[in-house]
């Protein structure tokens, strides 16, 4: 289980960034007092436009950055991501296009390397490798250096390696971004398999169809604030709409009206 409690993340803008964002305030609140829970056997989707705070929230959960306020807890033992990040990292996997693989090595070498960093025994690594390489069709190119692989092959390798430790929690930033249709289908299907295996899955997306199809619950995040949270049906009912696109537009409009802004 994953529990995000009132996290806030503020970035300090450089003068150049302030000019680009047309603001005189050197502080940018990327995530503002966000709280939610994701349960085992559930796919939770953070839905929002670019710059809404989705990736920042996921980076806080994955320990890459620290929230300025609030905390995130993992599992029944409530391991604090903020205070016990080394321990927390052993319980999840995080995948984003920001994270790259060293292109000098082969998928096989990298899988073994990361498995070893997660403290797995050789036979455990082999077992996980066999399963994941077969799901993502990596066996054909397992001994070819990453730099010689196509973009799709690299992405499949990244996904397989991120799951090397058979984690309780899977965090995936924009899982279908940049993937071809077939690879995207393999990935979304596997996320469903992970959910069925009882894993806690959290994804971020700006694609409505992905959220609608894949997620058991959706959190709509706009301008760093979580504006709505619930199942697809609950969101549709609350906004009195028939599809997620319309629902999102209404939530977005309400958010801007509440902030006194214009769309």
């Amino acid at each position: 289980m994953l529990r995000v409690e009132n996290i806030t993340k503020i970035y300090k803008l450089s003068k150049k960034q302030m000019r680009l964002e047309n603001t005189k305030d050197p502080r940018k609140v990327a995530v503002n007092n966000v709280s939610f829970e994701v349960h085992p056997g559930e796919i939770f989707g953070l839905l929002g436009p670019n710059g809404a705070g989705k990736t920042t929230t996921l980076r806080c959960i994955s320990t890459l950055i620290k929230p300025d306020e609030g905390d995130i807890f993992i599992g029944k033992e409530r391991i604090s991501v903020v205070h016990d990040d080394d321990k927390a990292r052993g319980h999840f996997s995080f995948l984003t296009s920001e994270l790259k693989l060293e292109d000098h090595f082969t998928p096989n070498y990298l899988f073994n390397f990361f498995g070893s960093l997660y403290g797995l025994a050789e036979d455990q690594i082999e077992k996980h490798k066999e399963k994941l390489f077969s799901v993502f069709g990596i066996n054909e190119f397992r001994e070819i250096k990453v730099k010689q692989l196509s973009t799709g092959m690299k992405q499949k390798t990244s996904i397989a390696i991120s799951l090397v430790n058979d984690p309780e929690i899977v965090i995936f930033d924009e899982p279908t971004n940049g993937l071809d249709v077939l690879t995207a289908k393999t990935v979304t299907d596997y996320l469903e398999t992970l959910r069925d295996e009882g894993k806690t899955v959290i994804i971020s997306t700006h694609i409505m169809s992905v959220a609608a199809k894949l997620c058991d619950r959706i959190g709509v995040i706009i301008d760093g604030k979580l504006r709505k949270i619930g199942t697809l049906q609950q969101i549709l009912d609350d906004t009195k709409t028939n599809d997620l696109d319309d629902a999102f537009f209404i939530i977005y409009k309400e958010a801007h009206e509440a902030e006194g802004g214009v769309i």
């Binding site: 920001e98 994270l99 790259k100 060293e102």
Partner: peptide, 12 residues
Amino acid sequence: RGTIATLLVTPI
């Protein structure tokens, strides 16, 4: 190249 971040999300 963005490969160090991949290491930073492991338990090392």
